[in-house]
Nucleic acid binder design. Sequence first.
DNA 1: TCTGGGGTCCTAGGACCC
DNA 2: TCTGGGGTCCTAGGACCC
Length: 396
Amino acid sequence: MSKIIVHIDLNAFFVRCEEIKDPSLENLPVAIGHAGRGGIISTCSYAARKFGVHSGMPTFKALNLCPSLILKASDFAFYRTMSHSFYRFVRRYTKMVEPAGSDELYADFTEQLKNVKDVESYFRNLQQKLFEETKLKCSIGVAPTKFLAKMGSDYQKPLGLTVIRRKDIKKILYPLSIDDFYGIGKKTCPRLKQIGINTIGDLAVAIENDSELLKQIMGETGFEYVKEHLEGRGSDVIHTEPNDPKSIGNSSTLMHDTSDLDEIKQMIYQLSEEVSQRAKAEKKIGSTIQIVVKNTDFKSFNKSITFDTPTNDKDAIFSHAYQLFESNFEGMVIRLVGVTLQNLVSIQDMSIQMTFFDYEQHEEESKTKLLINDLNRKMKKELFVRASQVKKENKK
DNA sequence: TCTGGGGTCCTAGGACCC
DNA sequence: TCTGGGGTCCTAGGACCC
């Protein structure tokens, strides 16, 4: 028997939070974002959307489109408490809740709806109660799989409620633009449109008739993903366990574009420090360090290195990150740098494999290795500098 | 004032071991 | 000396989502 999976999405969540703080903002064009260098809109009100403003848009552009736009700085602490209220509210109905960010979640209502005849009224009621208790507005999708529920909650906003049974897939999803397919993004869409696939219905036809061509465009996995979901065979399993981070990263656009090594070094140090703090708070250590570097022309590259002993020590993270940067730096002008700790494992899991003493010893050994590497690099540099000095003198 | 910052997952090639 | 696959790990890059 099919499960009843629900996706609940808070409408314009950050903006709604600001409206709750200051109700005079309601119905006005409001956006969350900042106007500084590289500032973008993270969310905006429906009134602002009418002007063509949307999330991800550079702030200055949004202000051009909508000069009366009210810009609010983000207040994540408040958003977090509102998000907790939202989750608490839903968990009163069912414990089968899977988090999907601060403003959306999946939940399994199969048990709750066993003896309910009118599913729509049930969720209209939930929607209304959420509003009464928290002042938050949501859209709800109800379906046999998570994917279909997600498509359902996206179908109508704000305050939408859409039920998609397997037999409704053709009627509801097929007429939608391919842009609305969750999982097909802005790279794949144009390529699909190029071969005449504009709607989800077109895609369904192509799955039957043009599978080889589709596989070329989206890869084997992408093809299977799309096919499975359109046939209503997607996952209906709710993962209630809190998500375990697989990487912890920190990146920042510099105050101004630069190729000044000291400035970049300083930034890499700050980023490493924060990554270390967050990893320690999560009780995680990682064995891969990755850096990301973005140039002024928005080309970016990643470099990473994996080592034997996982760590969350700030000096170790910095040392690896800076080494990666230095050995790939060719004097280019940099816009953004980022440091990420990957291949995370819990310190608890590690301690099962080795005693605490071993772990401490490992830490010390890896620090020593880093020191030696550092010394080697410095010596090489010095030798290089001396060699070039000698060359110069010889020329004279 | 052109284009943030946090992630996850997938692919493809090369190295290395058996 | 040359020739094979299979499996796993590492690295770089890309697509996508919130």
